[in-house]
């Protein structure tokens, strides 16, 4: 069974900083980082008009479907995807086979610049996720839920 994704304060801030910087460097509108299972990890830029939870879930669905298509034609994955819209476009990159970096941009920047900046950011993110995986699999890194009681769980459903 896949291990669960655990995010710690320090790595969370480092990831947010990378996403913030990518938004500025690529002159993008929004940058998202999404777990392959559809959980939103980080969002930077003009996120106020976007339903981030839905975006995360649909990104994961899209990446999973394209991964399935890739396997059908003998590829392992399609690590990069570009979707061009009339105003806004969307670029998705798989990072470390585990998370998806999504950049939304318009004509104030160019696909070339976005790709260039994504490359650098995804290298940095990959390192952070390797560190994160090592940290959460280290002995003693238990779930915070080890402490909860059956009563805690019952209380959640009491109303």
């Amino acid at each position: 069974m896949a291990t669960q994704l655990v995010m710690y304060e320090e790595e969370f801030h480092r990831i947010n900083a990378v996403c913030d910087r990518l938004t500025k460097d690529a002159n993008a509108k929004v940058v998202f980082l999404v777990d392959k299972n559809g959980q939103l990890i980080s969002a930077a830029g003009q996120t106020h008009n976007i339903d981030t939870t839905s975006l995360a879930s649909l990104t994961a669905g899209n990446v999973a479907a394209m991964g399935g298509l890739a396997k059908l034609i003998g590829e392992n994955e399609f690590p990069n995807q570009f979707h061009e819209g009339a105003k806004d476009s969307l670029y998705m990159t798989l990072v470390g086979g585990r998370v998806v970096l999504v950049v939304i941009f318009d004509n104030r920047t160019s696909l070339g610049l976005v790709r260039l900046r994504i490359k650098k950011a995804s290298d940095e993110l990959e390192k952070i996720f390797i560190a994160l995986a090592a940290r959460s699999s280290a002995p003693g890194a238990g779930s915070p839920f080890a402490e909860i009681s059956d009563a805690d769980i019952d209380n959640l459903f009491s109303e």
Partner: peptide, 15 residues
């Protein structure tokens, strides 16, 4: 596979 975020103190599960 649940996602536990210590920083935002959230836990996400998939059903």
């Amino acid at each position: 596979m649940s996602f536990i975020n210590y920083s935002s103190r959230e836990i996400n599960c998939k059903i």
